[in-house]
Simulated scan of single mutants.
Amino acid sequence: MIELGKKQKLLVVKTVDFGIYLGEDRNAPQNERVLLPSKQVPEGTKAGDEIEVFIYKDSQDRLIATTREPMLQVGQTAVLKVKQVTRIGAFLDWGLEKDLLLPYHEQTNRVREGEECLVALYVDKSSRLCATMKVYHYLSTRTPYVPGDSVKGRVYEISGNFGVFVAVDDKYSALIPAREATGKYRPGAILDLRVTEVKEDGKMNVSDRQKAYIQINEDAESVFSVIEEFAGVLPFDDHASPEVIKREFGLSKNAFKRAVGHLMKEGKVEIRDKRIYIKK
């Protein structure tokens, strides 16, 4: 069976002026053959030869073969560049003559010409190849990483309930849990991360924060700078609500309390009257 969106080895069944027809065997019927245009045919090719090709559709929606290498196949993910944005969606460069459509309804955020985006390749209901930025189900769970490893990940979706969804190496499934997601994130951003957990299903939990004893100095400096911006008096103490703390500092309440405690231990701040003061 000739499979759309995949590379496969096929036999040369027939030669014509404009190329060669390929099939799974020499007796493949007309409706089970696909054309490889003449400009793609390797020199010296003859009937019965086996050729590896990628199957997609031409501008008239007909199956066609190519010996060019696509950047991804059905079910795979890749980072592709946006070549054009139109009223029906964005068109991406994926290494073939015909650009790949990323429909608007498959975009998790609006893309612009010249940008790069992480996408997966799928076959839509009309049997056309399309890209989607909804890559969660396409990412691999066969991670080579273990807790403690340093990795790079690309943000592809942000959820208030679950956290920040990340594709490690643009390939592996990972999540910054909501409790850890204390910074400001945007889709497409590439983060330096630390693997904190690898679950039984192979999905990873990651963090963009260092271990607490390393992170505390950085957090303390950040908190001190914000208090300075409040003219040396923060109008609340470490009992403030988690929402207020996250809004002002981008920290969890526990991280904020650790930072304030560190500053107090160093003699830089003091708490009185439910406020935090920089010590003169």
Rank of each mutant, 00 (worst) to 15 (best):
I2M: 09
L4N: 10
K6Y: 10
K6I: 08
K7Y: 01
K9T: 11
K9P: 00
K9I: 07
D17C: 03
G19Y: 03
I20Y: 03
R26T: 05
A28Y: 00
P29S: 09
E32K: 08
R33V: 04
R33A: 06
R33G: 07
V34G: 07
S38H: 10
S38F: 06
Q40N: 14
V41M: 12
E43G: 07
E43Y: 10
G44H: 14
E50H: 01
E50M: 04
E50T: 07
I51H: 04
I51D: 08
I55V: 14
K57S: 09
S59G: 03
D61V: 12
D61E: 15
D61P: 09
R62N: 15
R68A: 12
R68L: 12
P70N: 05
M71W: 01
M71I: 01
Q76Y: 00
Q76P: 02
T77R: 05
K81N: 09
T86F: 12
T86K: 15
T86Q: 14
A90V: 07
W94L: 07
L96I: 10
D99H: 12
D99P: 14
L100A: 11
L102I: 08
L102Q: 11
L102E: 11
P103C: 00
Y104K: 08
E106Q: 12
Q107M: 10
Q107R: 03
N109P: 00
L118H: 03
A120S: 09
V123K: 06
D124Y: 08
K125L: 09
S127C: 05
R128H: 14
A131C: 06
Y136A: 13
Y136D: 13
S140R: 04
S140V: 06
S140D: 12
T143N: 02
T143G: 08
P144M: 01
V146H: 02
P147M: 02
D149N: 07
D149V: 01
V151I: 05
V151R: 01
Y156Q: 07
E157F: 04
S159P: 00
N161T: 11
F162L: 13
G163A: 07
V164A: 01
V166C: 05
A167P: 08
A167H: 03
A167F: 03
D169S: 09
Y172P: 09
Y172W: 02
S173F: 00
S173M: 03
I176D: 10
I176S: 08
P177L: 01
A181Y: 04
G183N: 10
Y185T: 04
G188I: 01
A189N: 01
L191A: 06
L191S: 05
D192T: 04
L193W: 02
V198P: 08
E200S: 09
G202E: 09
K203G: 10
M204I: 06
M204Q: 11
V206R: 04
Y213W: 13
Q215E: 14
I216P: 12
N217I: 13
E218C: 05
E221Y: 14
S222K: 15
V223M: 15
F224P: 13
F230G: 10
A231L: 13
G232T: 03
L234N: 08
P235S: 12
V244S: 12
I245H: 03
R247K: 14
R247N: 12
E248L: 11
G250R: 07
K253Q: 12
G261M: 14
L263R: 05
M264I: 11
K265G: 14
G267L: 15
V269C: 13
R272S: 14
D273I: 03
D273M: 06
R275F: 11
Y277G: 15
I278D: 08
K279Q: 15
K279V: 15
K280H: 15
K280S: 15
